[in-house]
Design a binder for these strands. Structure first.
Length: 918
RNA sequence: AGGCACGUACGUCAAUGGUAGACGGCUUCCCUUACAAGGAAGAGGUUGGGGGUUCGAAUCCCUCCGUGCCUACCA
């Protein structure tokens, strides 16, 4: 058999995915057990414009680990993929294309433009679906959905109509975030706020009928043209007499009142605020309170209107700012200008500065929906956030302070609002134009030109993708989903809205749990972003280290923020190579052997022979009777079962880091470093004896179980190797998948069996490991050449220990390169020996005639003694404390006493040894 | 401004209130017939500072210092 010495991830990544996909292994229908429990995840739909970034790779890895684990455990699993139409992003993308052709969307007109977007999607959208296949994501592509699919669009219209009929959607005039570039309204969540250096202008307004002036401070002088009041705090002594007065608004011929409002902060600026209800959200609110007129001086293109006055009309807002300041200076009303840093709002997509404008938009009333979500949390504790702290509170606090949601957008790409207007301006909301005509009693209707916020359709994702409003089999089977995996920055934008919509239209939460992943930062601790150019491309990492190594790195990120560290991936690349070579060893020694779970049951309870390796436990048939199992055989089975139990527990608790660590150490430390080494003598025998073949079968069976355990994390290498193992086949599959062709992804996940945990074997094995480590330590410290053989003398008063050492004698000799090993009840060794103290009062000596430096040896032993002594000192101090002895659990106190006794024995043995060296 | 996290080895991160660990890096030795992407043996910590609760604190409480995130507002 020809197996390369190095694992080549690309080779393994080439074929398996396609086979899994075309064979239908990802689809829930592959599971033939009618009573199988169900596990569902809906993917957070990436933007159709997007390509894979680290955040996706992280989320997908975690979702895939869970899905593959559940699938192997026998669940009917659905991981539903799809994409979001991403209104603004996509429209921008196509706009840019048009620009290159010297056109804009208005040249095409709405219909042609939308066609063009669909064409763009067909040609170059959905890069990410290719990358997801590379990742190994076991999503069911037959369930792939797009938020603009006809079915999903129908769900959108249905929800809109029902909410409208319930009075929860309304049309109104409000101040909104307006993007002058994209020509659309934006929700608060689509606006980026960032501090920026600017200036604060102090403007003086003359008070009528007096020679006083009142000074207001502003960062946006151009808006003064639309001022309709000056506000002061009612408790402010400085302005008390001015409340009710009239001021002459400079550069205009308007008179405006001085009003009093609690909102005004006396400490800030001059304590007097100019009020521009049409161009500032807070002023707008105040305007409503005081019934102030709204003078619109800036239009939707951020240019000044004619109401700004003839001199300003048509000017860009920043030009107008300069001119206003200039004119104030000329008339001597500019008091001062100071440098001032304030935060400025920009469009999240195009980065243009937002202009607050009053405009007619559609809104969703959130109070009722909010209450439904809060009720789910308080009464059913759904959804359960992982980690619960701090996300549950962040989520509920936000809900409690929720404002109405602006749902209309002035875009062409998206779900056009299902509202029609008659000639008389009547509004008809309907599921279709036909229904609208019937309702209105006329066919002379014009549909609202706006589309819905992209997040409107995303909010329906957990049920719209399953066929709602039809009550389909999918909907009945897979709703609610089991867990949502996402990043923390869309808890409000998306998670909360799905919960509200799920509660409203499905009557229950859309998912049981919400797993919030950590954030992957760059090596400087900065967030990765396109603008900073500090992102790491997951595909490049795949190419360099392999998908499996990258997945392992990402899986252990879990919920904590971490700095990206390529060294970690490299280390898991090495781990993959270790797996490869362990398998290589097994395969090179596999003649006459076969995977057989029966060989793994070696305990006294081994019972009837019934080969059922597909059972989700590590075998259950009679073991090797002819040639009794060795300690290391019993030991590795114990370790394997402990590992399986621990990994299952960790996964159930979303402890991915724990699961990865457990698997890593089981495979590398227990299986490779000890088990393979200890079993090598038997496995590499020249003669094809039953004993050799059993040993071969056993090691290959342990390997097979380990590959299953690793599969959810490392799908490619495990499948690649598993396919090569002798003895795997249909019988390896979980019973629910009995019809499928053999694949590790449908094999039964080892559950672990507590009855196969063998503490006795673990203790005995530990004694052996201890002995080997001691001899190696001596070799190393005494600078004994690797090729040089040593004699090992062991004295063990305990009979059990002697038998342990005896039975492992050959392996020990091999691993410490001993020429001979002699075990007796009392150590008798030449004076010129290096010595060590072992467990249970046993001692060890390595005769080093002519090699030993007595001084050096004494020092080595004293260091050993000191280590023990300092530990003993601490423990004794604990025992001195009567409170500890009285109050700590008896078990704990006993532990300390035992340890002290053990140390005392070792110390005195060491003392003896040192004295004998004199 | 308010709120919330975090601070552990040189680096990145673990650790139900019970002897602080892993990986990488570092030192020494070894291309020993699965693997040098490897093997063996080591060094490295008063868990940011101070105080408290407790028999016992990395862990719980207070405080200071440092870092990050979120929310609101900054006229």
């Amino acid at each position: 058999m020809d197996i390369p010495k190095q694992y080549d991830p690309k080779q393994a990544e080439l074929h398996h995915y396609e086979r899994w996909e075309t064979a239908g292994y990802f689809a829930p229908e592959i599971n033939k057990d009618p009573n199988a429990p169900v596990f569902t995840i809906v993917i957070p739909p990436p933007n159709v414009t997007g390509s894979l970034h680290m955040g996706h790779a992280l989320q997908h890895t975690i979702m895939d680990v869970m899905t593959r684990h559940k699938r192997m455990t026998g669940y009917r699993t659905l991981w539903l993929p799809g994409m979001d139409h991403a209104g603004i992003s996509t429209q921008l993308m196509v706009n840019r294309e048009l620009k290159k052709e010297g056109k804009n969307r208005h040249d095409l007109g709405r219909e042609k433009f939308v066609e063009r977007v669909w064409k763009w999607k067909a040609d170059s959208g959905g890069q990410i679906t290719v990358q997801m296949r590379r990742e190994g994501a076991s999503v069911d592509w037959s369930h792939e959905r797009f938020t603009m699919d006809e079915d999903l669009s129908r769900a959108v219209r249905e929800v809109f109509v029902r909410l409208y009929e319930d009075g929860m959607i309304y049309r109104g005039n409000r101040i909104v975030n307006w993007c002058p570039q994209d020509q659309t309204v934006l929700s608060d969540l689509e606006v980026d706020k960032a501090p920026q250096a600017g200036k604060l202008f102090y403007l003086q307004y003359p008070v009528k009928g007096s020679d006083r002036r009142i000074t207001v401070a502003t960062t946006r002088p151009e808006t003064m043209l639309g001022d309709t009041a000056v506000a002061v705090n009612p408790n402010d002594e400085r302005f008390r007499d001015l409340v009710g007065a009239t001021v002459q608004l400079p550069l205009t011929n308007r008179d405006i009142p001085v009003i009093a409002d609690e909102y005004v902060d006396m400490e800030f600026g001059t304590g007097a605020v100019k009020i521009t209800p049409a161009h500032d959200p807070n002023d707008y609110e105040m305007g409503l309170r005081h019934k102030l007129p709204e003078v619109v001086v800036i239009d939707q293109f951020a240019k000044m209107t004619k109401d700004a006055g003839d001199r300003f009309a048509g000017l860009d807002r920043y030009k107008a700012r300069e001119k206003v300041v200039e004119e104030f200076e000329q008339v001597g009303l500019l008091e001062k200008v100071i440098d001032y840093e304030f935060s400025i709002s920009r469009c999240e997509r195009c980065k243009t500065v937002i202009e607050p404008l009053i405009s007619t938009q559609w809104f969703m009333r959130m109070d009722g929906l909010r209450d439904l979500a809060l009720e789910l949390m308080s009464e059913k504790h759904k959804p359960a956030f992982v980690p619960e702290v701090p996300y549950e509170r962040i989520y509920t606090n936000w809900l409690e302070n929720l404002r109405d949601w602006t749902i209309s957008r002035q875009l062409w790409w998206g779900h056009q609002i299902p509202a029609w207007y008659t000639k008389n301006g009547e509004v008809v909301v309907a599921r279709s134009e036909a229904e609208a005509r019937a309702k209105a009693g006329t066919s002379d209707l014009i549909q609202d030109q706006d589309v819905l916020d992209t997040w409107f359709s995303s909010a329906l994702w957990p049920f719209s993708t399953l066929g709602w409003p039809n009550v389909t089999e999918d909907l009945k089977t897979f709703y609610p989903s089991s867990v949502l995996v996402t990043a923390r920055d869309i808890i409000f934008l998306w998670v909360s809205r799905m919960v509200m919509m799920g509660a409203k239209f499905m009557g229950r939460e859309p998912f049981d749990d919400v797993f919030i992943t950590g954030t992957i930062l760059d090596s400087q601790g900065q967030r990765m972003s396109k603008t900073k150019m500090n992102g790491v491309d997951p595909v490049e990492v795949f190419d360099k280290y392999g998908v499996d190594a990258t997945r392992l790195t990402l899986a252990q990120v879990g919920t904590t923020d971490i700095r990206w560290n390529e060294k970690q991936v490299e280390s898991y690349r090495n781990f993959a190579n270790k797996i490869w070579n362990a398998a290589r060893f097994c395969l090179l020694n596999s003649e006459g052997a076969s995977v057989d779970a029966g060989l793994l049951v070696l305990g006294p309870q081994a019972s009837s022979p019934a080969p059922m390796s597909s059972q989700a436990q590590v075998g259950n048939t009679a073991g090797d009777v002819t040639y009794g199992p060795s300690i290391h055989d019993r030991w590795i089975i114990s370790r394997l079962n402990k590992t399986a139990i621990s990994v299952n527990q960790a996964l159930a608790a979303y402890q991915f880091h724990e699961a990865v660590q457990t698997l890593y150490h089981f495979f590398w430390d227990d299986f490779c470093d000890w088990y393979i080494e200890l079993t090598k003598n038997d496995v590499t025998g020249e003669e094809a004896t039953q004993q050799r073949n059993n040993a071969r079968s056993r090691v290959i069976t342990v390997l097979e179980q380990a590959l299953r355990l690793l599969h959810p994390f490392m799908p490619y290498i495990t499948e690649e190797l598993w396919q090569r193992l002798p003895g795997v086949g249909k019988q390896s599959l979980h019973p629910a998948y009995a019809d499928a062709e053999p694949t590790i992804m449908l094999a039964a996940y080892p559950a672990g069996d507590t009855s196969l945990i063998d503490e006795e074997a673990e203790w005995e094995m530990q004694a052996t490991i201890d002995l080997i480590s001691r001899v190696r330590n001596i070799r190393s410290e005494m600078n004994i050449k690797p090729g040089e053989r040593v004699r090992v003398l062991v004295g063990a008063p305990d009979e059990r220990l002697r038998s342990v050492y005896n039975s492992a004698g050959a392996q020990i000799s091999r691993l410490v390169r001993a020429s001979e090993i002699s075990i007796s009840d009392r150590l008798e060794a030449p004076r010129a020996s290096a010595r060590a103290v072992l467990v249970g009062g046993a001692e060890l000596a390595v005769p080093l005639e002519g090699l030993i430096d007595f001084d050096q040896e004494r020092q080595r032993l004293r260091r050993e003694q000191e280590k023990l002594q300092s530990e003993a000192t601490k423990l004794e101090a604990q025992l001195q404390n009567s409170n500890f002895v009285e109050r700590a659990p008896a078990e704990r106190v006993a532990e300390v006493r035992n340890r002290i006794a053990d140390i005392a024995q070792r110390t005195s043995q060491l003392q003896q040894t040192i004295e004998n060296l004199q």
